[in-house]
Computed example of a mutant assay.
Amino acid sequence: MKKILIFGSIAVALILVLVWFGIKNSKSPIQYETEKPFKTNIVRKTVATGKVIPLEEAEIKPKVSGIIEKIYVEEGAKVKVGDLIATIRVVPNIQALNSAQGNVKNAQLRYNNTKILYDRSKKLFEKGVISRQEFETTELNFNSAKQDLNNAKNNLQIIKKGSAAGVGRTANTYVTAEISGTILEIPVRKGNQVIESNTFNAGTTIATIADMTKMIFEGKVDEAEVGKIKKGTVLEVSLGAIENKKYKAKLNFIAPKGTEENGAVQFKIKGDITLDDEYFVRAGYSANADIVLEKKDSVLSIKEALLQFDKKTEKPFVEVKTGDQEFEKRDVELGISDGINVEIISGITPDDEIKIWNKTSKKDDKKRDRRN
């Protein structure tokens, strides 16, 4: 009798243990949490990378070749149109110099000869020996010889010094500012040899001048986004050198042709930046421009992480709570997204509780932490 009671107690205990394990295993090992839809503003934007550059920028180049004799300004200085930047000392070509000197001597001989004839003809004309016509012909030859001598001397002066005498700062050897603005760069120094700008050569840049009060953003956008932007769009420009500061810019140019970079086609864009007196914006600052592609205010939304996609149809759906840890599948129609929140056009109501399918319970998180 005692053995029967013992075995009976063991059997009952075993049955209770099995029942307990069955109840425990019947419950889901993961306790899912839920979130409700909410209303928010969604802005879909793209970012264009680029830099800030002056709207008006000019490279100052010499009109004659030679050697920099003196530089009168420094980088960062403000100049006006006509201000002297540098002077150039011309190094004459020996062959051209010899030729010019020979022309001066020939012109001088002709002038001396015509002067003698002119003086003689004048005396004879005053005495009535020769006619007026003959005297005027001699006078014309004399004046022509005098002009040829002056031209030959000026040519010799130009070859020696780069300009004729008496022209002042308009001489080719004087390099002056073509626009008003700030000197950005002077890539040459005193004693450097420079080449004039002509049809076959761009010439040596002596200085770069820009108007720093008028700046533009120049950047590039991907071909997938360029069709969604238009002229007049307001950009928010952030500069790498200035933290926690954004400048407004108005888009005024979209390139009609793209360029391929790293396998993607990029289109150049430009926008006028509105500056203020808080910071001095320097040319060449790296910048990013936020471009708003689409915006909706106070729309029904959920976090994009709550979405799931059907493996066959690839249509989006969510799981809506129907009871304690019980959920049903609901297909949803989506609107715009900013990468965090997504607009819900249809499929759920504001009162629905949506399953956070990719987040486990706190107990599981603690177990995982202990294992790690």
Rank of each mutant, 00 (worst) to 15 (best):
T40I: 10
L5V: 13
N155I: 07
N244Q: 15
K362P: 02
F309H: 02
T46M: 05
K246H: 13
T46I: 14
T46S: 11
V299C: 00
K70L: 12
I68Y: 07
N192S: 09
L300P: 01
V234G: 02
K363D: 15
E196P: 02
G22V: 03
F135L: 12
K161C: 06
M212E: 08
G8V: 03
A11H: 02
I206G: 04
A145W: 05
E59L: 10
N372Y: 11
R120I: 12
K296H: 06
G76L: 13
E136R: 12
Y247L: 12
K312Y: 11
T137D: 08
Q95F: 14
K245E: 13
V12P: 00
K153C: 03
G335N: 01
A289M: 11
T205V: 14
T205R: 08
I15S: 12
Q108K: 15
L84E: 08
M212V: 12
D324T: 05
D148Q: 14
E260I: 15
E196K: 15
I186K: 07
R189N: 08
N113W: 08
R189M: 09
E294C: 00
Q193P: 02
E236G: 13
Q308M: 08
T137S: 14
E75P: 11
F200P: 00
F125P: 02
T349R: 04
W20S: 10
K214G: 04
K355C: 02
P316Y: 01
F309D: 04
E126C: 05
E243S: 15
T138V: 13
E126G: 05
S9M: 07
T138C: 09
A48V: 06
I206C: 04
T46F: 03
V91N: 11
N252K: 12
Q133M: 13
A100M: 01
K115V: 06
V237R: 04
R110T: 14
K270T: 09
D310P: 05
L140M: 08
V64G: 03
A210Q: 07
E261Q: 11
F21Y: 08
E260H: 07
I116D: 09
D297Y: 05
D290V: 10
T233L: 15
V43R: 13
P37N: 05
E134P: 11
G263S: 12
